[in-house]
Amino acid sequence: MIHIDGLWAGYGGLDILRGVDLKVEQGTINCIVGPNGAGKSTVLKTISGILAPRAGSIAVDGVQLGGEPPAAILRAGVVQVPQRHGLFTKLTVRENVLMGAYIIRRRGRKQMDGRYEELAEIFPLLAERPHVLAGSLSGGQRRMVEFARAMMLDPKIVLLDEPTLGLDPISLAIIRDSILVMNGAGTTILMVEQNVRFGLSLAHHATVMSAGSVALAGSAQDIADNPHLMDVFFGAASPRTEPAA
C-alpha cells in the first residue's frame, strides 16, 4: 500500500530523515515508535506533503507521490491528523469536519451533508454539538473532531501523529476505540506514538526509528518483546540497518 524507499528529508541545513525504508500493508494498523528527535513525525509530514523529500521515493498503490503538494496527496486518499493544534478553533465542529472535504467542495452540499450524517453515527459529538466552536472543546473531543474530519474524504490511509499526546486516560480509551473503528471500516492506519505501550498494543506492525532511520521493524508483538527496544530508547548502540543513500 505505502512503499517508502531510501527517504531523506529535513529542514534548512539539517537532514532529519536519513534513508528511511517503510512498508505498510493494506488494512493494517502500523505504529512507528522511537526516541524524541528520531524523525517519526517527519516521516508523516513527508508523506502528507507538508515537507518535500530530498531523496528517495514515496509510493501509494504504486503511484509516486513524493514531492506532490498536500492537495494531490489528499486526492490519492492519504489524510494526516497532525500532532497538535489540528483544529480551527474559530470554526464550529461542523465547519471543521466539512473542511476535511475542502478539496472535493465542488461536489455539492448534499453529498457533504450525507457524509457528515454517516460520520455522526461513529462520532456522536458531531450530532450532539455541531455548532459549538472547536476552540471550546476538550483535548479528547478535539481529537474526535480531527478524526471525523480525516474520514470526510473516506481515505485509504490515515496518518496519526501522536494521537494520545497530552490526553488523559479516559480520552485514551476513546481514541483507541476510534482507531479500531476506523481500521474496522477498512482504513489503513499509520501512526506515530510516544506512548509505546499504547501504540504497540493497538498495532499489527511496528517500526522503531532512531536517529533518522529505521532501527527495527516487524510485528508489534515481536517488537514489544525485542530486547533491543529499550536500548534504542536509552541511546545505547543499536543494531541499525544501514540505509542506502
Binding site: 507538508i50 480551527f88 475542502y102
Partner: peptide, 20 residues
C-alpha cells in the same frame, strides 16, 4: 471564508486539508 479563517489561524492544519 472557511479557508480564510482556517489558514489565518492554523496554516499547517489548513495545508493538511488541502488549503494552501
Amino acid at each position: 471564508g472557511y479557508a480564510i479563517t482556517a489558514a489565518s489561524e492554523n496554516p499547517e492544519g489548513a495545508r493538511l486539508v488541502g488549503v494552501e
